[in-house]
Structure formats: structure tokens, C-alpha cells
């Protein structure tokens, strides 16, 4: 039991090299028929990256064979991801990125901040979180959209405020 615990978890550290290898091979497939100017730099960098990744695979393979390492993903995924609210935060963040196109900056940011803070704070201090979320999203609206005139994603709130402000002037 103790021996298993002492083994180095190497599954997680292989994720980026595997992704790197797959991406490099895909990249090569997109330039295989291109002029040399499009190939030279990428082939040079890509080949080095492939060699480095292969070296890491061999190094970790040898550690596995010696019994010094285990093909586990403890370093990347653990129960802490659920208990700390990290997984929930990731889901809420993905939802935020998708919904902001329809909900607009102010409303979506308010909902995101409220939900994320409530989840991370285990449901405590909801009143304070609601006030903080409202203050920040409205502050963001005033600073970015009204003051800097940044073309942030617009939704019902921004459209409504635009109507109110244009009638007022």
C-alpha cells in the first residue's frame, strides 16, 4: 500500500506532450503541400518538439518499467476538484463564455459572479455575494461600455440602457 503511494504519478504530465504530438502531426498535415517558406520553421520547431516528447515518453516508460511510477492522474484530477468547487466553477465558466453572446455583459457577468461565488463559498453569505456581484457587473458596465465605449457583448440590459440614455439626451 505504502509502495503504491510512493510511486510518482505520471499520467497527468503526459497530457500536454500527447496533445503536443497530436497537434504537431496535425500541423504537419496542413503544410505538407505548402511552399517551403510555410514549412521550414514549423518543421524545425515541430521536429524538436516531437523528439523532446518522445524522450519524455521513454523516460516515463522506463520509470513505469522499474516500478518507480504509476500511470495515474492524481496530479491532474482528484476529489479536491469536486470538494473545492473547481469542477462546478469550470462548468459555470463554460456557461458564462457561451451565454454572454445572448445575455450580454452585465446580466451574464452578474449571474456568473453570483453562482460562482455562492458555489465556492458553499452557499454562505448570499446577500453579500448578490450585492458584490451586482456592484461589479454594474461597475464593469459603467467603465467598459459607457466610459470606454468598448463593444462588449450586448444583451437585454445594454439595449434597454441604450434606449433610456438616448431618450434622455
Amino acid at each position: 500500500m505504502n509502495e503504491t503511494k510512493q510511486k510518482r504519478s505520471i499520467g497527468g504530465e503526459l497530457v500536454l506532450p500527447v496533445a503536443g504530438v497530436l497537434f504537431t502531426l496535425y500541423y504537419f498535415s496542413t503544410i505538407i503541400d505548402s511552399p517551403w517558406t510555410a514549412q521550414v520553421s514549423a518543421f524545425f520547431i515541430g521536429t524538436i518538439l516531437l523528439c523532446l516528447c518522445v524522450a519524455l515518453f521513454i523516460k516515463n516508460g522506463m520509470a513505469l518499467a522499474r516500478g518507480d511510477a504509476a500511470m495515474t492522474f492524481h496530479t491532474l484530477f482528484s476529489r479536491l476538484d469536486i470538494s473545492s468547487g473547481r469542477l462546478a466553477l469550470l462548468m459555470i465558466t463554460i456557461g458564462y463564455a457561451i451565454l454572454i453572446a445572448w445575455g450580454g455583459f452585465t446580466i451574464t457577468t452578474f449571474v456568473f459572479l453570483f453562482l460562482a461565488m455562492t458555489v465556492l463559498n458553499k452557499g454562505n453569505s448570499k446577500g453579500f455575494i448578490a450585492l458584490l456581484s451586482a456592484g461589479l457587473s454594474l461597475g464593469g458596465y459603467l467603465l467598459f461600455i459607457l466610459a470606454f465605449e468598448t463593444r462588449f457583448p450586448r444583451g437585454p440590459f445594454e439595449t434597454f440602457m441604450e434606449l433610456v440614455l438616448s431618450n434622455g439626451s
Binding site: 466553477l89 465558466t93 458564462y96 457577468t109 456568473f112 459572479l113 465556492l120 458584490l132 461589479l136
Partner: peptide
């Protein structure tokens, strides 16, 4: 509080 603000 800080993490959601940073992300948003």
C-alpha cells in the same frame, strides 16, 4: 471572491 472576479 477573487477567483470568479479574475475569470469574469
Amino acid at each position: 471572491y477573487m477567483a470568479p472576479i479574475i475569470i469574469a
